[in-house]
Amino acid sequence: MSERKPFELQLNSVTMKVYELDIPKFTAYRIVFSSPRPQLIVARARNADKKVFWTSIPEGRQKEAEALGNLIEDYLSKKENS
């Protein structure tokens, strides 16, 4: 398991460094905050209806995972289209 070069996202006054984790068969990111908030790992998963959702790894920070996972997705799709 390794990490790719990070990209940066900004939310309000907090800068986040986002590292893509290179793990076969998983899409997961490690987020390091410029604030004292502990780092967070988010991963794409599928719910029982086969719909994709973002989850924190380990469990416990679901709301953050959803919000930041979507932010990462927006960033990547804009980058792809630019």
Binding site: A45, A48, E59
Partner: peptide, 13 residues
């Protein structure tokens, strides 16, 4: 994390 997932997905996570 409060979301219903299949057993396979649970094991994967």
């Amino acid at each position: 994390n409060g979301t219903k997932v299949t057993r396979d997905e649970y094991i994967r996570l």
